[in-house]
């Protein structure tokens, strides 16, 4: 049974177990053509594993995956010509030049002879490496490698791209540039699945899938997620003795949830106005005077933490 053409990627109850450890726990979704979907979650959440199953690199323990209308489990080979893949380590050939890498992948994907020079030029320019075709890849900095890897993945004009943490370990400027490229590709109708552990990159996606401990917690557009009622209002507190402050805040009246964010604390309260008034004194009393307190609007990360917490609580797990 093939999926309707509007769904280039379909996952149905995908499960992957490694021994007794369940890496992916009944994940299901449907992606639209030309969509950019981000898989968000902490390290070890199961994002890479899910992507690899969709590419046919791992065999699911249970469930179905249909990519470009082909059942991946039954016929992984046919899928490969229709997809582009970027693995976590970029995996370019370090001892080959930029041009040699591109030519290699052009040959592997059998890009038609007539199109070859033009596609290679396109990829080179897209990566910003025009003029540096004969540099060894080992001499390139992270951002360049990243874009080159993307270029190698699109030479054969695949309708679907799977990118596994393409922005890891790359400077913020390059990351932004990279997302610009993805948007350009998406505008041309290419469906892109990207995994990342940078929560702020969710803003770049059409839809975001939040993944934690192998489970798909929520899948919606960033806007929809932010509108998700947190069940309260969010305050930010800065103070010296974070540990003491957090312990005190857990017991404070009107406080639903307390989470540390770097060297600040985010507090979920019923009534922001009331809390803004009461908390400074409360904390001073408990030996943790604060230096700043203000109201903030929730980020994806806040939502994620909340959702994960809720999931865990409902599942009876420690949050």
């Amino acid at each position: 049974m093939t999926a309707p053409p509007e769904s280039p990627v379909v996952a149905e109850n995908l499960v992957k177990r490694f021994g007794s450890f369940t890496a992916v726990d009944h994940v299901s979704f449907r992606i639209g053509r030309g969509e950019i979907v981000g898989f968000l979650g902490p390290n070890g959440a199961g994002k890479s594993t899910t992507l690899r199953m969709l590419c046919g690199l791992l065999r699911p323990s249970e469930g179905r995956a249909v990519v470009a209308g082909i059942d991946v489990v039954r016929d992984p080979e046919s899928v490969r010509q229709r997809i582009g893949y970027m693995s976590q380590k970029f995996s370019l050939y370090n001892d080959l030049t930029v041009a040699e890498n591109l030519r290699f992948f052009g040959g592997i994907y059998r890009v038609p002879r007539k199109e070859r020079p033009e596609r290679i030029r396109f990829a080179t320019e897209m990566a910003g490496l025009a003029g540096r075709e004969n540099s060894l890849v080992s001499n390139l900095a992270g951002g360049w490698k990243q874009r080159l890897a993307l270029g190698c993945a699109i030479l054969h004009r695949p309708p679907i791209l799977f990118l596994d943490e393409p922005t890891s370990g790359v400077d913020p400027e390059s990351r932004r540039r990279f997302w610009d490229l993805i948007h350009t590709l998406s505008a041309d109708g290419i469906t892109v699945l990207v995994s990342t552990h940078y929560m702020e990159e969710a803003e770049y996606c059409h839809r975001v899938a939040l993944i934690d401990r192998g489970r798909l917690i929520q899948m919606a557009s960033p806007a929809a997620l932010k509108q998700h009622s947190l069940g309260g209002e969010l305050l930010l507190v800065e103070c010296e003795a974070i540990g003491v402050a957090m312990a005190a805040l857990q017991e404070a009246p009107g406080v639903h949830d307390v989470a540390a964010f770097g060297n600040t604390i985010h507090i979920l309260v019923d009534n922001a106005a009331a809390a803004l008034q009461a908390l400074p004194a409360y904390l001073a009393e408990h030996g943790a005077p604060l230096t700043r307190i203000e109201r903030i609007s929730p980020t994806i990360e806040d939502i994620f933490v909340q959702l994960v917490g809720a999931e865990s609580r409902s599942a009876g797990l420690p949050s």
């Binding site: 046919g56 490969r80 893949y85 592997i108």
Partner: peptide
């Protein structure tokens, strides 16, 4: 690089 290679046809 093998991981990438096996994702190709």
């Amino acid at each position: 690089t093998m991981e990438l290679l096996i994702s190709t046809p």
